[in-house]
Design a protein around this nucleic acid. Structure first.
Lengths: 106, 106
DNA sequence: GCTCTATATGCCTTGACCGGCATATGCCAA
DNA sequence: TTGGCATATGCCGGTCAAGGCATATAGAGC
């Protein structure tokens, strides 16, 4: 329980299922327990990891806790991905250019 | 050694360093060993995981193996991320709209 | 204050994985 | 074919995380 960054957080399939579920709306812990079919302590532990990675945030309402998506974590992931995406773009540009050149030659 | 998907592959810091390094150009295993300062067997093992996740591909030249980025894996990650990105967009739209409404009221 | 509900935390076991090391494999040159 | 270089693979020990279970905490109502 040291280095809970976004990458380790989304490495776990169950946690990705939680994130997928939260896309539609915020959920109570109990709702996730029921829909995912895993134990409540387990859900709470996964939510803790997701929270530390800023992938979810909590809204406390009396004894209930509503969990919802938090943009920060996934934006971090998106930022990490960005330079790689640029490489794809460059390759596509190069491909297009190559095709253009080829057309000219015809 | 079961479920080598993109998520588990990028969960490891060393593997992310390898990917970062491969952004500039394809590399030999020995080059990665030297630049990363870790043992050769270790690099080979990480490369194997990255290969299974389609994050890198190999070009064999005699006894040498050039490793380069493979788009497929990171595109998978990008695809997983897409629906979340749409949510950000929706929220930004909603924010803009709210600001517009507020301006009108002034 | 007591109790019920909702959730979090602690302990334990098991399994996965990382790193180090030794060794195997594959390819080339002489 | 023998030797040497580049890389992969197998084994081992330590570590860490996931899941199950029991239990602690916190709020709401009586």
């Amino acid at each position: 329980m040291v280095d809970r960054d976004v990458f380790t957080a989304i490495g776990e399939p169950t946690r990705r299922r939680i994130l997928d579920q939260l896309r539609s709306r915020e959920c109570l812990v109990g709702e996730l327990v029921e829909s995912l079919g895993i134990s409540q302590p387990n859900v709470s532990k996964h939510l803790r990891v997701l929270d530390q990675a800023e992938l979810v945030r909590v809204r406390i309402d009396g004894p209930r806790r509503y969990y919802a998506l938090d943009d920060h974590g996934l934006r971090d992931l998106d930022a990490w991905l960005a330079p790689f995406r640029e490489i794809w773009a460059d390759r596509l540009d190069a491909l297009e250019q190559h095709l253009d050149e080829t057309n000219k030659e015809d």
